[in-house]
């Protein structure tokens, strides 16, 4: 259970992640807004409470790992990392500028705190499984977290990794499915319906539960349960809204990659601050 104070702190952290994410994209005037906004509450719980990391030592051996397989949500992760102190806040203005340390998709060679390079969808969970396997072999207690998108789960490689993780009893692996129900061209229901994740994952011998992906306490409680080392990998299906918290993007069908004017950004940030 989170204390009221901790809930308030995480709410504030989530809000700041959103503000900086919108602000980053406004510099270039475009970005992957929808899928970045939908994971901000999860990032708040991970970096604000659950993950064992040290901003001074991004490669710390004892850290927990996060693989954001939906690499286009990079800007939201960068906001969280910067707020946490992995790199100066000023870097956030350099998103997608020449020679930047913050490219649109996550790149572990460029950004302190990014554990794994992603961007070609469907590959992150396999890499996460490899890391989790290595940590199991070495009897290391690190937690391995991986975020995939619901659209991304249409890539077959995910299901290879899901079978592999169950077979190898990777109970140190926690998978989040950002179930925002939209992909680039349309809704997932209209293109390639993936429902229901919980049933699918359970039938693949995973432990799975569904929570409101914008309820900080629910996310935290689900992670607490998923940390149980019972021989099964764990999945938390986050029911989210694509574009959540960005006034001009939320609830718009095609908000995967959109233009972001300075005025729109200011209005959206004002709305978050109200």
């Amino acid at each position: 259970m989170l204390t009221d104070k901790k809930v308030q702190e995480l709410e504030q952290f989530a809000k700041e992640i959103r503000i900086h994410t919108i602000d980053q994209m406004a510099v270039r005037g475009f970005g992957h807004m929808g899928g970045a906004m939908s994971i901000c509450d999860l990032l708040s719980v991970l970096y604000g409470k659950q993950m064992k990391v040290d901003p001074q030592r991004p490669q710390w051996e004892e850290r927990d790992w996060l693989i954001c397989s939906k690499g286009h949500a990079g800007p939201a992760v960068y906001s969280a990392l910067s707020l946490k102190g992995f790199f100066p806040r000023g870097w956030l203005k350099t998103l997608n500028q020449p020679q930047t340390s913050l490219p649109s998709h996550c790149d572990h060679k460029k950004t302190p705190g990014i554990d794994v390079t992603t961007g070609s969808l469907g590959q992150g969970l396999s890499v996460a499984a490899g890391i989790a396997l290595a940590k199991k072999i070495d009897q290391n207690q690190n937690q391995i977290y991986c975020i995939i998108g619901d659209g991304e789960s249409q890539e077959g490689q995910n299901w290879e990794a899901i079978m592999f993780a169950a077979q190898n009893k990777l109970d140190n692996l926690i998978l989040f499915v950002d179930n925002n129900k939209q992909q680039l061209d349309n809704t997932t229901a209209n293109i390639c319906n993936m429902e229901s994740f919980k049933e699918k994952l359970e039938s693949f011998h995973w432990e799975a539960e569904e929570v409101d992906g914008h309820d900080l306490e629910a996310i935290d409680a689900a992670i607490e349960r998923a940390k149980n080392r019972n021989g099964k990998p764990h999945a938390v299906v986050l029911n989210t809204i694509k574009g959540k918290g960005c006034s001009f993007a939320e609830n718009i069908l095609k908000n995967h990659h959109i233009n972001v004017s300075k005025e729109q950004a200011e209005d959206a940030i004002d709305a978050l601050n109200r």
Partner: peptide, 25 residues
């Protein structure tokens, strides 16, 4: 923990290998 048969899934085998190497294997 050394000789691993992944099953018929080359894409995941290579991805998993990359993850193993990231963690020092």
């Amino acid at each position: 923990g050394q000789l691993i048969n992944c099953g018929i899934q080359e894409a995941n085998m290579i991805g998993t290998a990359c993850g193993l190497s990231a963690a020092g294997k």
